[in-house]
Write a protein that binds this DNA or RNA. Structure first.
Length: 855
DNA sequence: AGGTAGCTCTTATAGACAGCATGTC
DNA sequence: CTATAAGAGCTACCT
């Protein structure tokens, strides 16, 4: 089938495709067209990676939009959202607008409603539905990419439920589901009332094999000799062999060089493997490549000062790299891009790479096909689907004659087993994970809160159209779990049941819209209420009276989760002072946080501090959000148990809630790992260097970012909940800002200025510039010196802070401390020798700092 | 004494979405 | 309860 033969395609699209070199659609694409994707028919395409699924989606979306509709493309990863957006943007010249919406990025700022095609993660779509985004009701076409992920126990149910909601909202909605080849694509198609297109066809041939001894045996019966050599390292031999090129395919010079992707089962293995493989890739580099790699290496070093950066840079300099979730996202994209540009010859990666952005490789080596799994209690073999996803990365279109995917075997039995298990085997069927309690907890609340069900019967009816329901004959289980979940939600004050009707409470609505797991919300509410109730005692304990141990075991927290809608009477008077400052604050700060508001900020803090230390403390709040199910826990390593048990007792008065008994309560372990996470966040908010943190907690720079991001989100949610429940808001907001900027309290106003982060803020502060007003009035040479003589930076910052005369032109070089020259009009009022904040002597930043050091 | 091959013992184990309102060094 | 690899620490043996 040729592009021109595709029905209902908008003007110019066929010609454009031809311009891209597409003369003929791939067979699976043609099959999808025949099934009616461009005529608005729902289609499930279960085809291998890189067989042109995206074009199928594009054809569907473009034709649907051409008929006057709107299309939504759902991706599983934020990184994929931007990748797809860029891809779709080539249709903008034909009048199709593209927008992205993910948690951390919203396109343009132009409202999504005006877009023809929107790309979003499934969670974001779910959230949009919960918040009642109007344009969602006008969708005509939805594409679900990687739909086999409904099998994922954590995130699968979201996709499943979201698709259900979209179909309910838009009767006649076209659903295009793109899936890897799975065992039961027909069931998925049945669920979505879609035509099934199934195919094994690939544009580039994929040869799968197992390496054992001195050769690879391929699935087509052929063999390729790859002697392991003296090192005894088959991976090294295979990488080297790929770089040597293929003698069969008449070599036309360097172009024959093939890159390799090595999949291993742990971060440490990825790094260790890359360190070894750099000695393999190094000899294959040209001088030119070496130069460019050296540049790349220094770029990588600049990303973060953590150890990981150095290690990665040293590997990259020699043409190898590693890739895992501990890397900063800049690291990842630098490595991915360089690999795509064929500069980096080999990546050793954890499974991140198999699911992520497109990084095809000549050869894929699946070194570890088993991975540690705590629940399984040992090394669990990877799913066939997962291994196929990895192997599917083999073969770079236009560069390689074919792709090779190789598994490693140590002995003949393993070789045979691997053939059996992965090469000849069909992938597992996709199975819905919706009936798991954590998933239902969230989605039942959301379903009721956003009006998809008003009674238990309606709820069950809604759930009946999910994949889970199509897959099971036993509706009893779902019903049973649903009832448990309903009871839980009611008990915690998120739902109300009256006769047959279900209504979300006001808090319930908030929780649903904040996209919190109800259990997270319950934990947060519980902790904040506990803090209100025990404030007096805890503050006393914190101010040094030796009451810490007594106070911590107060009765107030009886059993597990207390009802969310607590009794307002008793906590009422204790938070009277909060209400006053909190209310004034709501009106003031948020609305116009311009430069003039600084003093308001300062006064507020003063009020807070008048009656003792801020409570709850940052650590307490960090611990609170760290123990929710929405925060991914850090592992307790050996020795950590002792360390954190000690810290736990030292700082018990700061923790919001009763510490579980060390000896009797299984939750103690979790309490400690939450404390470890909390301490990481506290270090970050105390301006501890990144490399110290990575070292101290055994994490990568990417993990720090991840933890901080999650904490920011959860503290933001906690702030909203506190506001709604009339609990004290200010400490929560402060803790949130401190993680957000990674600074101590005294730097908060400075770090909020655009262009000023934790490091610059600290330098300015040390130079005596403590507030925005200081900055506006400060001697320019002082500012310049604090910013290490960066004129451009300094000018930008002064401009952002609203200074009249930001120009640095006439300021002398940083080292000549000249106090005469600078100092604008504002500077005369409050000279640098008399920083503004010293006026507010009681606004003592040390107070908070010493609290942090308490114990 | 100093060095090292080879053994046992210990240790650690993948990934990443979301609110809201705007912009790191 | 289930595994495996790497690294640490040790021993036995060699030079």
């Amino acid at each position: 089938m040729q592009p021109e033969e595709v029905p209902e395609l908008p003007e110019g699209v066929a010609a454009h495709l031809r311009g891209e070199g597409i003369e003929e659609l791939y067979p699976p694409q043609a099959a999808a067209v025949e099934a009616g994707v461009t005529r608005g028919e729902s289609v499930v395409a279960s085809v291998p990676t890189a067989s042109g699924k995206t074009l199928v989606a594009e054809l569907a979306m473009l034709s649907s939009v051409a008929r006057g509709g709107t299309a939504l493309y759902i991706v599983p990863l934020r990184a994929l959202a931007s990748e797809k957006k860029t891809e779709f943007e080539r249709w903008e010249e034909y009048g199709f607008d593209v927008g992205v919406s993910t948690g951390n990025y919203e396109s343009d700022g132009e409202w999504l409603a005006s877009r023809d095609i929107v790309v979003a993660t499934s969670e974001k779509v779910d959230s949009l539905v919960r918040n009642g985004a109007a344009w969602i009701d006008d969708l005509t076409c939805v594409v679900a990419d990687e739909v086999h992920l409904v099998d994922d126990s954590h995130r699968g149910p979201t996709l499943e439920v979201t698709l259900g909601k979209l179909r309910t909202l838009n009767p006649g909605l076209q659903v295009v589901a793109l899936s890897a080849t799975v065992g039961n694509a027909d069931v998925v198609a049945e669920w979505l009332d879609a035509e099934l297109v199934e195919s094994d066809w690939r544009p580039i041939d994929l040869r799968m094999g197992v390496h054992y001894g001195n050769a690879i045996s391929f699935d087509d019966g052929s063999q390729r000799e790859v002697p392991v050599g003296s090192g005894g390292r088959p991976t090294a031999a295979l990488v080297d062999d790929a770089l040597d090129g293929d003698p069969d395919e008449d070599a036309d010079g360097a172009d024959d060089q093939g890159s390799s992707l090595v999949f291993v089962n742990s971060r440490r293995n990825a790094e260790a493997s890359a360190k070894r493989l750099r000695d393999v890739t190094d000899p294959h580099l040209t001088d030119d490549e070496r130069g460019r790699l050296a540049e790349l290496a220094s770029e990588i070093r600049d990303v973060s000062d953590a150890d990981t950066s150095d290690t990665l840079a040293s590997c990259v300099a020699k043409g190898a790299a590693f890739h895992h979730a501990g890397l900063a996202s800049e690291h990842r994209s630098l490595v991915e891009d360089a690999f795509r540009d064929r500069l980096v010859k080999c990546i050793s990666a954890t499974p991140t790479l198999a699911a992520g952005v497109n990084t095809p490789s000549r050869r894929v080596i699946v070194r570890d096909w088993r991975r540690y799994d705590g629940e399984f209690g040992g090394m669990k073999p990877l799913d066939v689907l997962e291994v196929h996803q990895m192997m599917g990365r083999a073969g770079r279109p236009g560069l390689d004659p074919y792709g090779e995917a190789v598994l490693l075997a140590k002995n003949a039995e393993t070789r045979d087993e691997l053939f059996e298990r992965y090469i000849w085997a069909d992938p597992e069927p996709v199975r819905s994970k919706l009936a798991a309690e954590p998933a239902l907890r969230t989605h039942v609340l959301a379903t009721v809160a956003s009006g998809f069900a008003h009674t238990r019967a309606e709820l069950l009816e809604f759930l009946d159209q999910t994949l889970y329901a199509t897959q099971t004959d036993d509706s009893g289980r779902l019903e049973h779990v649903t009832d448990d979940v309903l009871a839980y939600l009611e008990r915690n004050g998120f739902l109300e049941r009256e006769d047959d009707s279900l209504t979300a409470t006001s808090v319930g609505h908030t929780v649903s819209r904040l996209y919190l797991d109800p259990m997270t919300a319950a934990e947060i509410i519980d902790g904040l209420e506990w803090a209100e109730a025990n404030r007096g005692e805890m503050v006393r304990a914190l101010s040094g009276e030796d009451a810490a141990s007594d106070a911590a075991s107060t009765p107030s927290s009886d059993a597990a989760p207390t009802p969310a809608s607590g009794d307002p009477t008793e906590a009422g008077f204790q938070r009277a002072s909060e209400l006053a400052s909190g209310a004034g604050d709501e009106n003031g700060t948020d609305a116009d946080e311009t430069a003039d508001e600084d003093e308001t900020d300062a006064d507020e803090t003063t009020d807070e501090n008048l009656d003792g230390p801020t409570y709850p403390t940052a650590l307490g709040l960090f611990h609170l959000v760290s123990r929710t199910p929405d925060m991914y826990q850090l592992y307790l390593k050996s020795g950590d148990r002792e360390t954190y048990t000690e810290i736990c007792y030292e700082r018990e008065a700061e923790l919001l809630g009763r510490t579980p008994s060390e000896y009797e309560d299984v939750r103690f372990e979790e309490w400690l790992s939450a404390l470890k996470t909390a301490r990481l966040l506290e270090d970050w908010a105390d301006e501890v260097d990144e490399d110290r943190i990575t070292e101290r907690y055994g994490v990568g720079p990417g993990d720090i970012r991840g933890k901080v991001e999650t904490a920011e989100w959860l503290l933001g949610a906690a702030e909203r909940l506190a506001g709604e429940l009339d609990l004290s808001v200010v400490p929560v907001r402060e803790a949130k800002k401190r993680v957000e900027y990674g600074v101590r309290e005294e730097l908060l106003t400075l770090a909020g200025i655009r262009g000023v982060g934790r490091k610059r803020a600290r330098r300015l502060y040390e130079a005596g510039i403590e507030t925005r007003a200081d900055l506006r009035g400060a001697d320019k040479s002082v500012v310049l010196r604090a910013l290490r003589g960066r004129r451009k930076t300094a000018e930008g910052i002064l401009e952002n802070v609203g200074r009249q005369d930001p120009s640095m032109e006439d300021v002398a070089k940083a080292d000549s401390a000249n106090t005469e020259r600078a100092g604008g009009p504002a500077g005369q009022d409050e000279g640098p020798s008399q920083p503004a904040s010293t006026r507010a002597g009681e606004d003592d930043p040390e107070e908070q700092a010493s609290l942090g050091d308490f114990g």
